[in-house]
């Protein structure tokens, strides 16, 4: 079980300070990659694993509290929420829905990128119910850039799910869609 949040504001040094104060050990820092940025993993005295992700692909950073006794994980979460501005999936989903009510394309794109980055960082089970409506709405948007953003971030789904979401869609303003549709369909077919 894990809980993931997007970190909108806050100093990573404060995050580190909280963890060190609670006896966490830095156990791994993964080298930067184009596709998923870089991650620092921390292990707590009770076995709670915390991951700090610099998801440079979408210019976001996230925090994931991984395993361990739930009460300890919740205590840590509260301590981190005091020094960092944390947004979990539900909050981001609400933000996305609020943005859809406005005609502000820039705000919609930001809300979508926040949610997509969170979905990429978290466990699939955390976002199952929210991911499909968000991406579907983005693919149905009138803004070609938002549709493009949705199309480019479909990797958060399994290939078969991504293929279903793209099936039957035509987008003259985003000619790459045909290529991605074919890509996901062929990956899905290859896996069957």
């Amino acid at each position: 079980m894990s809980r993931t949040a997007l970190v909108r504001a806050g100093d990573p040094a404060q995050f580190e300070q909280v963890l060190r104060f609670q006896g966490y050990l830095l156990v791994q820092v993964t080298p930067w990659r184009f596709s998923n940025g870089t991650e620092a993993r921390w292990l707590g005295p009770d076995g709670t694993m915390v991951t700090w992700t610099e998801y440079t692909w979408l210019g976001r950073r996230g925090l994931r509290v991984w395993v361990g006794p739930e009460d300890a994980a919740m205590q840590l979460w509260s301590a981190l929420a005091e020094v960092l501005s944390l947004f979990d999936g539900a909050a981001l989903y609400r933000g996305w829905q609020e943005a859809l009510k406005t005609a502000d394309a820039a705000a919609q794109l930001e809300a979508f990128l926040d949610f997509a980055a969170w979905a990429a960082m978290c466990d699939a089970s955390e976002s199952t119910t929210m991911r499909t409506p968000v991406f579907q709405a983005a693919l149905d948007s009138a803004d070609p850039v938002l549709r493009l953003a949705a199309m480019r971030n479909l990797y958060v789904f399994t290939p078969d799910r991504a293929a279903v979401l793209l099936a039957g869609r035509e987008d003259p303003e985003n000619p790459g869609m045909a290529m991605w549709r074919q890509h996901y369909a062929s990956v899905h077919a290859g896996r069957r």
């Binding site: 184009f34 596709s35 440079t56 692909w57 979408l58 210019g59 976001r60 394309a105 820039a106 794109l109 930001e110 990128l113 980055a117 803004d143 070609p144 850039v145 493009l148 953003a149 480019r152 990797y155 303003e173 985003n174 000619p175 790459g176 869609m177 290529m179 890509h183 990956v187």
Partner: peptide, 28 residues
């Protein structure tokens, strides 16, 4: 590979939309 920032820029620079169909770094 700063796709997020490029998408934001693409809202004001339509010429960016074409290359962003597949780039940057669409290794898959």
């Amino acid at each position: 590979g700063r796709l997020g920032w490029l998408l934001r820029l693409a809202q004001h620079m339509p010429q960016l939309r074409q290359p962003l169909q597949t780039g940057p770094h669409s290794e898959e």
